[in-house]
């Protein structure tokens, strides 16, 4: 029922002097809707992670409504949407970082390789080692570059000897494209690096524990265009070995780096489609309005 209502509002879209008005109408419909369905191919065959009926509340306020989607193995999936649409909150449900916020309650099911992440018996600490995260603002620890990268391996006992650890650190820095710049200053503080280098250090730190999935929460929003380009290249390379979910404010970035794109609006997952489709022929009115810059 709700689905037909939505598609109706799309099909009535004629040649448009009043498009923004119609968009507002659709938005109003969306707000009043009890339930809705995501448009596009949100579910896939070989899913790494599956999200079913996920709702997230901050106290009384609901931030995420009934999200269904899959994340494919070794794909880069971008989450886009206007500010406050819940895309970051959604990302943080995938490694249970929302647990650190007292008032936050998550319902529904998130599975990785068939294992329910919200199972009370599941060890959150272990989960977070398997699902790494890179944050919006580079947050290297106030330690040396080496110690930053060695932090995770030390915690989880991934290196048995000093030689192993050196090798692991070197490999991680190489994969993050920071080795050449950092190899002569491994024991200087990580906070002395430039913003872009710091972010690559954080990526190196995340991949040092060999996660299966890497979540990136607007990893380039604090960086200049050149540093951004380097990170984007890096994401491309990393996608060969890791599954990556990236939240971004930049539609160009989503178009450049991702295979699929998910569009969130007011806490609802509106549309998931191959990136090309989303940016050339979006199915949903709101997606179209957003990517053409009518609001955001």
């Amino acid at each position: 029922m709700s689905n037909s209502k939505l598609s109706q509002s799309i099909s009535t879209d004629g040649a448009d002097p009043k498009i923004s008005e119609q968009v507002l109408d659709v938005e109003k419909d969306l707000l009043s809707m009890e339930s809705y369905s995501t448009i596009g191919n949100n579910l896939v065959e070989d899913a790494k992670m599956s999200v079913r009926n996920v709702n997230v509340f901050y106290g009384d306020k609901q931030a995420i409504f009934d999200v269904h989607m899959d994340i494919k193995k070794n794909e880069v999936i971008a989450m886009i949407g206007p500010s406050g649409c819940g895309k970051s909150t959604f990302l943080r449900t995938l490694n249970r970082m929302n647990d650190t916020i007292d008032s936050c309650v998550v319902s529904g099911e998130v599975t990785m390789d068939g294992e329910n992440l919200y199972d009370p018996k599941l060890d959150v600490v272990e989960l977070r080692a398997r699902v790494g995260m890179v944050f919006q603002k580079p947050n290297p620890f106030p330690k040396s570059i080496f110690e930053n990268v060695a932090y995770g391996p030390r915690l989880h006992g991934l290196a048995d000897s000093k030689v192993d650890l050196d090798e692991l650190v070197e490999n991680s820095l190489k994969k993050a494209g920071l080795w050449e710049e950092a190899k002569d200053r491994l024991h200087q503080p990580g906070t002395g690096l430039s913003g872009g280098q710091q972010q690559r250090l954080c990526i190196a730190r995340a991949i040092a524990v060999e996660p299966e999935v890497i979540l990136m929460d607007e990893p380039c929003s604090a960086l200049d265009p050149i540093a951004t380009a380097r990170i984007e290249e890096l994401i491309e390379e990393l996608s060969q070995n890791f599954t990556i979910a990236i939240v971004t404010h930049s539609m160009q970035q989503a178009a450049r780096v991702s295979h699929r794109t998910a569009y969130f609006h007011l806490g609802k997952l509106i549309e998931v489609n191959p990136t090309e489709t989303v940016f050339t022929m979006p199915e949903h009115k709101l997606t179209e309005a957003y990517i053409t810059g009518r609001f955001g």
Binding site: F135, N139, V209
Partner: peptide, 10 residues
């Protein structure tokens, strides 16, 4: 962000 960084490392 320091705490988040560490917690996210497991």
């Amino acid at each position: 962000s320091m705490r988040d960084g560490s917690l996210a490392m497991g």
